[in-house]
Design a protein around this nucleic acid. Structure first.
Lengths: 130, 130
DNA sequence: ATAGTTACTTGCAAAAAGCAAGTTTACATG
DNA sequence: CATGTAAACTTGCTTTTTGCAAGTAACTAT
């Protein structure tokens, strides 16, 4: 995933998207955020087993790119919970299409909770506000 | 991108999709195929400037994963042109959603040809048959 | 005969990923 | 009070992947 200051490979919107979130881990974190996870340990406990240094660096990059924001959820020590921004929530249709594709072509993959295919980016943000 | 024989990180359809095409280059090649490019040199000449060894390895993996097929377009020496399979063409909605997202959030990106947002996976395969 | 084209492969250096261990700050227990 | 546990990271190091440059093979054109 691209550091914010670097240049894009081209001005094609597809390649820019891949510069920003085109790696093996970023969208896995976004998926977890869509499913309501918000703390560091939540992401670590996902079945893919993301290495902790990669998780920390991806959260930083996702924040730099305006896809997530972090908010303190306690003091002493200050700990942060992570949430999707509108920009991040708008990645949901991308995730949904990826899931549809895999479901069609990869036999032994799981079926996500029904709600996953039904929610919209707005739903994710509304959940946030409550 | 995943070698065909390896295991997936999990059985989640999202992470499987990323195991298969979650890297910086695979979908750039799929984009070019959607736009009618088919020869090695066509992919090389795209503005992103894919390194030739990466291009060769990605075409091999995309073929192993059933996303592209190659067909000889001349003999002496035998040269192959690459085309999307149905599985590959069905990645179009993913690309379209990625483009919508970038257009919404990244100011100075280009607008793809109007046809790109209008075509369907079936159109790509029909084009093939002619 | 020489140069050019197309589609690659090979070798090597640089960058990124992955693993294990360590650090920090605080709470909980005996 | 000392020890242990937990959450959220960071650091160090090895392995893998990427990226660049150069080389190769099989023709075609001049």
């Amino acid at each position: 995933m691209k550091k914010t200051t670097e240049e894009y490979r081209s001005k094609c919107p597809l390649s820019i998207a891949l510069d920003l979130i085109g790696d093996k881990w970023s969208l896995v974190i976004v998926r977890d955020l869509c499913m309501g996870k918000s703390k560091y340990g939540d992401f670590q406990s996902s079945p893919e087993g993301i290495p902790t240094n990669i998780l920390a660096s991806r959260l930083r990059l996702l924040e730099e790119n305006g896809i997530v924001i972090k908010e303190p959820y306690q003091d002493r020590p200050t700990r942060y919970a992570y949430f999707l921004t509108e920009k991040g929530a708008d990645l949901l249709p991308v995730l949904q299409q990826l899931v549809i594709w895999t479901q069609k072509y990869v036999p032994d993959c799981l079926t996500p909770p029904e709600i996953f295919s039904q929610i919209t980016p707005q739903d994710l943000l509304l959940k946030r506000e409550r």
